[in-house]
Design a binder for these strands. Structure first.
Lengths: 154, 154
DNA sequence: TATTGTTATACTCTATAACTATA
DNA sequence: TATAGTTATAGAGTATAACAATA
């Protein structure tokens, strides 16, 4: 049945979607998450878990709620995330010194090594992805534009 | 308990996350989706459903699978999406002329009006968000950079 | 009263596999 | 045999509400 040639992906008219930052951001981000999954498959961590490790590594002793706020999600979501990282021996809950309600989070020694290795992986694929950009200048400009968009309110 | 001043969000060190396009893309996109939800709350459509309408409007007669491929997701996910849009009388499944396995998708008259209205809403908030960019020149450059990143393979 | 971690819960999004009817 | 739509299902991600312990 080839009477009417099928529209290939190239022939689709995306209309307004092509001019919408929201749609373009989503497509770009989906590609990055998919690539992250490929590159870190054997490490057993998602972009979300990687972000938790990154925050705790640079800000040891932070509470779960503080990490959640930094990453922009609910504190209830941190429970499963920290559980998972703790069960992998990458992260540690210690009793907070001045507040018996909360925990202070720290990377374990293994977690530190694991994170260093993960950063190498992610940096490697980030650099590969950034090859479609025009050098470090365009990348820095893009990072800056994305930060502005992430913080823009209506 | 204010012996040790709490780290505010501003004081958090994001480390490598600050230099990772993947993380920055996610934060920017989350902001856009949240704003989309606010602006289109009463319309009862998500960014995903809006995208389906946009594709069908510009490419009437496309099959469900073709729309799914255009948007980069699985055809099984289209069933619920088209069901929802059809139940709202915005979109119509018609039997395809040459293939009794597939449907051809079309906007209804109401769907056309609904979509025009939705485009106005979304364009309005898109323009508002784009005010943190340096004019149409930077926006066009950004759209172009995002397209490159969305299509980049390792 | 307010806050931390937690649990239960639910909702969305997404993908996989298998089924059916067609091709 | 291959494809379109469908179904069932499962996983991840995210959010809300309520609770106990603590501030």
């Amino acid at each position: 049945m080839q009477d009417q040639p099928k529209k290939s992906d190239q022939d689709i008219d995306f209309g307004v979607l092509d001019e919408f930052l929201g749609y373009r951001l989503r497509r770009a981000q989906m590609n990055f998450f998919a690539k992250f999954g490929e590159v870190c498959e054997d490490l057993g961590i998602s972009p979300g878990l990687f972000a938790v490790l990154a925050i705790v590594e640079r800000n040891p002793g932070l509470t779960q709620t503080a990490v959640a706020q930094a990453l922009g999600n609910d504190r209830s979501a941190m429970v499963a995330a920290v559980d998972k990282l703790e069960s992998k021996n990458l992260l540690e809950r210690r009793p907070a010194v001045n507040d018996r309600r909360s925990y202070a989070l720290f990377l374990t020694a293994e977690g530190g090594r694991f994170f260093d290795n993960a950063v190498k992986r992610v940096s490697c694929y980030e650099n590969e992805m950034a090859k479609c950009l025009d050098g470090d200048e365009e990348k820095q400009w893009l990072l800056n534009a994305l930060e502005r968009l992430a913080n823009k309110s209506l």
